[in-house]
Amino acid sequence: MIIEIWTKEKYAGNEEAAFIARLAHAGLKVKTARLSRLYRVDADFTKADFSRIASDLLTDNITEHCSLTPGKAGLKSAYRVEVWLKDSVTDVVGESVKEAVADVAGKLPAAVRFGRAYYVPCASELKLKLAVSKILVNEVVNKFKIEKC
C-alpha cells in the first residue's frame, strides 16, 4: 500500500516555489508544481488500518491531507515523478516509520519505504527527465519513474 501525504494548497506555497526555482536552475521553466510525500507500507493490514495509519500517524491534519490512492494532483497536462531510495539503500525515515506503524497498528509491517512525488505540468517528458536527473535523483542511490497523470 502506498500512502500519499499532501501539504494543503494554502500552506504549500513556499515548498512549491523553491521546487519551481530548482527546476528553472536545471533548465526547465514551469509555472506550477505540486509535491507530496509517499510511504510504501508492506503489510497485510485492512484498508481501515491503512486509513488510520495515514490520518492518525503520518498526517498533520491541520496543514496536510492524505490519500490511499496516489496520483491525483489536479494539475492539467502534468507528469508525475516518483522518487524512492533503492531497496538496497538504508532508508532511515522508513525504518523509524516502521516502528511507529507497529505501535499504531499493533503489528510490525514487513517494510516501510519513504519516497516523494512531484507533479510537473510541462510539454516535454524528455526535458523533465533531464531536469529530474540534475536536481532530484542520484541514480547511485535512487530509483524513479515518470508517468503522465
Binding site: 531510495l85 539503500v89 538504508t90 532508508d91 532511515v92 525504518e95 523509524s96 547511485v140 542511490v141
Partner: peptide, 11 residues
C-alpha cells in the same frame, strides 16, 4: 562503484 557509499542512521 556505487557500493562505496551509504546513507547514515543517526539514531
Amino acid at each position: 562503484s556505487a557500493s562505496a557509499v551509504q546513507i547514515g542512521h543517526a539514531v
